[in-house]
Each structure stands twice: as C-alpha cells, then as structure tokens.
Write a protein that binds this DNA or RNA. Structure first.
Length: 296
DNA sequence: CGTTCAACCTGGGCGC
DNA sequence: TGCGCCCAGGTTGAAC
C-alpha cells in the first residue's frame, strides 16, 4: 500500500515523538507468523527501552526512527517498512489482532507535565518488516546502493543517466527503487499519465526531454500527494497516524479506472499487466516516442 | 540483461 | 449463504 506520499505522511504524523523516551516495547506473536524482524524481539526490546528518539526519517518507502547516542550506546535506527498493509498509528488500531509492534513513550516535561503515548505498527497482511540497525546497517539498507534519488527531488538527468540505455519498459523501471526511491504502482501510473508517456515504452527510446517531463511530473505529483496526505482507496487500508483518510485519490486520473473514460480525452482507460502488476493508462493520451500518435 | 514465477500473508469483492 | 476465484498500495530470490 504505502508509497512515498503515504510513508512521508506517516513520518510527519509521528515526528512529534522526537525528544520522547521509549518506556516499553512489545512485539505480539499471536498471529500465525510473527513479523519479519531483526534482531529478535527480546534483543530489540532491550536495545529500545530507555532510548530517546532524536529524529524520524523517511528513506524511500521506509520510516527510520533514530535513537540518539548516549555515553553507553551508539546511535541506532529502527527501520519500519510497511510494504502492502502496514500502518503507523498513534491512536488505537482497528483491532488488537495484527499489531506487530507497540512502543510506549513519554516525555518528561517541565513542572511535572508528562506527555506520553503509544505508537503501534499495525499490519493486516504481515508483509511489513522491522529492523533495528547501526550506522552501517542503515547505509546497507537505505544507502545509495539500495535506493536511488528520492522521488520528491529526482531530476530528468538522474533518470536518463541511470535508465537511459535500458530495454525495460519505463513503468517497470519507475518501480525499481534503485533507480528512484518511493514510487509505487499508483504513482507510477499517475506520473506517466501526466507526462503523456506510454508505460510500455522502452527506456532507451525516451528522449532527454521525455525524462525531464517524467521527473518533473514525479516531483509535482508526489509533492501534491504528500500535501493531500496520500491516497486512501476502497477498503481504506491506508490511514494517517491519527486515523484519517488521505485525499489524493480524488486526483487519480488512471489508477484503478480500467474501462472508465479518460478525464482528458473520454477514451477508455486500459489495464494491462507488467511485471505481474496492474498498469493503468490511456492509450490515446500516452504515447511512445517514434510511434505515430493515435488521433480520435 | 531482462522477464517470469513463486513466496510471504489477510481480506474484500464478485460470479455462481 | 457459501465457495472458489481474482485482486490488492511491496519486495525478494530463483529459474530461464
């Protein structure tokens, strides 16, 4: 589920935890398979409790909660990867089932005021992951070998340089986190529609100008989706940290709209499958370089 | 190099 | 109502 805008919304939603101290951590195992985590729950708990949160980052589609160094312990990062259905919630989850992690935190205020609360990682399908890493682990998991430039700041030159010679279809390339970080199935479709590029076009056929258009639309679409707090679709599996819906779904032009009229040309939006994922696009408004543009 | 498939899971929607 | 099937915002590793 969550792509860059949803994960960035999660990050902002929990950014108020900075300065708080973790007082308890639990990792319920009541589900069939415990969440994929490293290290084990006991070690994780021991390393988390008592630590102060010094920052909350986002790397692509992952949130990283930074635990500041102390005299005894060096800095560490709790990397949470929501995958399809993971949510970070500061309010009680819909059910206690599927809670994969719960952190209690408090902040000793001046004059006896204590702010405290709970952060829950709630993940229905359980495909998400949790890792606690040191500085080296962070760079192995989220460094430039793993993640390309962030989608909010990617340039046409970045894309052209890294993918320009590839025979891959441009939609498949945009899902590759090493090329550009944060784009998933929804936003790849929306970006290519706005750029007017056919998702099946081979990267090596795209001109520098086409890459500039794709990068520009990526920055614009992702920034707008962040402003609208992401996309909540259908069964509402995505919610903000305080349990509200995103609003970018109202701006979707092609995603999930197979056989419905294109909002620009009124032709039917098509659904095809690329790399085992659905791709939605308008064959009239999106074309491949070198091919005659279809006319109505 | 690039594609395809399976796997990891739960749950909603649809046709019959 | 129930059953079987398809679908879903992601990632990884193996096989070809």
């Amino acid at each position: 589920m969550p792509e860059l805008p949803e994960v960035e919304t999660m990050r902002r939603g929990i950014a108020g935890m900075v300065g708080s101290r973790i007082t308890a951590a639990c990792f319920p195992r009541e589900t069939r398979r415990p969440i994929a985590m490293h290290p084990t729950a006991g070690v994780m708990r021991r390393r988390l409790v008592g630590r102060t949160i010094s920052a909350v980052h986002r790397f692509g589609k992952r949130v990283a909660i930074e635990l500041g160094a102390t005299d005894e312990r060096s800095a560490a990062w709790l990397i949470i990867e929501p995958r399809m259905t993971g949510l970070l919630l500061l309010v009680p989850p819909p059910t206690s089932e599927h809670v994969r992690m719960e952190l209690a935190y408090d902040r000793g205020g001046q004059g006896g005021a204590v702010a405290h609360g709970r952060l829950v990682f709630w993940d229905r399908r359980g495909l998400g992951t949790i890792r606690l890493v040191d500085r080296r682990g962070l760079s192995a998991a989220c460094g430039p070998d793993r993640l390309g430039p962030d989608g909010l700041v990617v340039s046409g030159a970045d894309l052209a340089h890294r993918a320009g010679g590839s025979r891959r279809a441009v939609k498949v390339a945009l899902l590759d986190q090493r090329l550009v970080a944060g784009i998933g199935n929804i936003y790849a479709a929306e970006i290519l529609f706005r750029a007017g590029i056919d998702p099946r076009a081979a990267c090596r056929r795209l001109t520098a100008e086409a890459w500039e258009r794709i990068a520009g639309e990526a920055r614009r679409v992702l920034a707008e989706a962040v402003r609208l707090e992401g996309s909540t679709i259908g069964d509402e599996t995505y919610r903000t940290a305080d349990n509200r819906s995103g609003r970018f779904q109202r701006r979707h032009r092609v995603y999930g709209r197979a056989r419905q009229p294109c909002r620009t040309c009124r032709g039917a939006v098509e659904r095809i499958v690329q790399a085992q994922r659905s791709t939605f696009f308008c064959p009239h408004c999106q074309w491949q370089p070198g091919r005659l543009r279809r006319t109505l």
